[in-house]
Design a protein around this nucleic acid. Sequence first.
DNA 1: GCGGTTTTGTTGAGCGTTCAACTATCGGGG
DNA 2: CCCCGATAGTTGAACGCTCAACAAAACCGC
Lengths: 153, 153
Amino acid sequence: MAVMTRWLDPDEQRTWRAYLTASRALMDTLDRELQRDAGMPHAYYEILVRLSEAPGRQLRMSELAQAAGSSRSRLSHAVARLETAGWVRREDCPTDRRGQIAMLTDEGFATLAAAAPGHVEGVRRHLFDALSPAQVDQLRRISETLAEHLTGS
Amino acid sequence: MAVMTRWLDPDEQRTWRAYLTASRALMDTLDRELQRDAGMPHAYYEILVRLSEAPGRQLRMSELAQAAGSSRSRLSHAVARLETAGWVRREDCPTDRRGQIAMLTDEGFATLAAAAPGHVEGVRRHLFDALSPAQVDQLRRISETLAEHLTGS
DNA sequence: GCGGTTTTGTTGAGCGTTCAACTATCGGGG
DNA sequence: CCCCGATAGTTGAACGCTCAACAAAACCGC
């Protein structure tokens, strides 16, 4: 049976296109800056951040994947690269023989500390500086709603 | 000289993380749905959309790149693939011998027409259904501001 | 028109992501 | 205890993107 498509009305269309353009431009810009200044893509930066915030600067691979919004496969490849860069080290998990623990090395922490100011400045310049405080608040609520909607279902 | 980093305050931090989580989840979900249902990534879908809306269903490569928010290189690779899929055809530009014109084939149009309802449904389900009309309006303003801010500088 | 600069588009290498397949281990019901 | 399904993580191939290098044509000032 043919189900009627609920097409986007002109306002929704305009919203969707603007959103696509903005989010693509934002992430592309930040990614390029991070690659240029710190030699790593944004996804890797985020892995290092999550590790740096974890107790003992270490996390199980699964927890790290969850925290960084990454698939297991992706994280596996990424950590392999981060390990050859000397920024992360892998160790066996003592309580689960299937498990691996990723830990941030001192060198990794130093690299992150060196990269952070420039990246934060970029986020501020490209995102927060362009929005009013009210818009920042709106964006937070919208994003939190969406995040829950998407990860909940 | 050492310049003080303008770190993110807790509210900004929370906003930024929520935004990252939401936008990544949204695009990942839509990309996966489109790959599953239509056999193409979202970036290719958008190329076909832009072509379908152009007069004569054709555009110069540069204009298409601009419209789809793509680099020239990326578009070149993408159109090469779309051409072997039979969805796009390339022709020489009559007024500029450097130029190439990408045109949507009938088969490409049919593929797009078949993919559109499912994709629109996804956009609606994952984005618009979760937000109030006021939030949709806020998101539009925020996105338009950001888009201008990012592509203007 | 000539010579340098810009613009247009392509190419290939390197990298990151996805997907499916796989191994190994854990946990729970009979 | 044993088996079966679920979970943890890895792997390799295919694919898309980025970047730098390049060729060709157009534009522009003189």
